[in-house]
Deep mutational scan, measured.
Amino acid sequence: QIFVKTLTGKTITLEVEPSDTIENVKAKIQDKEGIPPDQQRLIFAGKQLEDGRTLSDYNIQKESTLHLVL
């Protein structure tokens, strides 16, 4: 699982696999929060994550925290 922290300070927990794409993660966030993926920007280690890449591409491991910017 990974954590996604929103600007409001809320933390969302997501069940993911390293092979999941960023697009996939955004879809999971939409399921939980109702935020359309095209409004979501995910930041990890100061980098904006691209939809077509996977979590493992960015070396995002379990218990990692991503930041969600709208």
Rank of each mutant, 00 (worst) to 15 (best):
57 D>H: 14
37 P>C: 10
43 I>T: 10
31 D>M: 15
22 I>M: 04
40 Q>S: 04
55 L>V: 07
32 K>N: 05
65 T>M: 09
15 E>Y: 13
30 Q>F: 15
60 I>W: 02
21 T>I: 04
33 E>V: 15
36 P>A: 09
58 Y>I: 03
12 I>K: 01
43 I>P: 00
68 L>R: 00
1 Q>R: 13
43 I>Q: 07
4 V>T: 01
13 T>H: 06
29 I>C: 02
61 Q>G: 15
18 P>A: 09
9 G>S: 04
37 P>N: 07
52 G>H: 13
56 S>P: 03
36 P>E: 07
10 K>N: 08
27 A>Y: 15
4 V>A: 02
39 Q>A: 10
23 E>K: 13
29 I>L: 07
65 T>Y: 07
43 I>Y: 14
10 K>E: 08
36 P>R: 08
38 D>N: 11
10 K>T: 09
50 E>D: 09
2 I>Y: 05
57 D>W: 11
35 I>R: 03
32 K>F: 08
16 V>R: 02
43 I>E: 13
65 T>S: 05
30 Q>Y: 15
35 I>F: 12
12 I>C: 03
1 Q>K: 12
70 L>N: 08
39 Q>F: 08
33 E>D: 05
46 G>I: 02
51 D>M: 05
14 L>F: 05
33 E>R: 04
69 V>F: 12
14 L>N: 00
35 I>P: 04
66 L>V: 10
16 V>I: 10
29 I>E: 00
30 Q>W: 12
19 S>H: 12
35 I>L: 06
42 L>W: 01
45 A>V: 06
6 T>D: 08
64 S>I: 05
63 E>Y: 15
17 E>Q: 13
32 K>P: 02
28 K>Y: 07
58 Y>P: 00
44 F>G: 02
22 I>D: 00
58 Y>N: 02
34 G>D: 05
68 L>C: 04
39 Q>R: 12
17 E>M: 14
18 P>V: 11
17 E>I: 13
52 G>W: 13
21 T>M: 07
12 I>P: 00
18 P>H: 08
30 Q>T: 11
54 T>R: 11
42 L>D: 00
7 L>M: 13
40 Q>R: 02
5 K>L: 14
29 I>G: 00
49 L>C: 05
34 G>P: 02
68 L>M: 09
69 V>A: 09
66 L>S: 01
64 S>W: 05
25 V>F: 03
25 V>M: 05
19 S>G: 12
7 L>Y: 12
50 E>C: 11
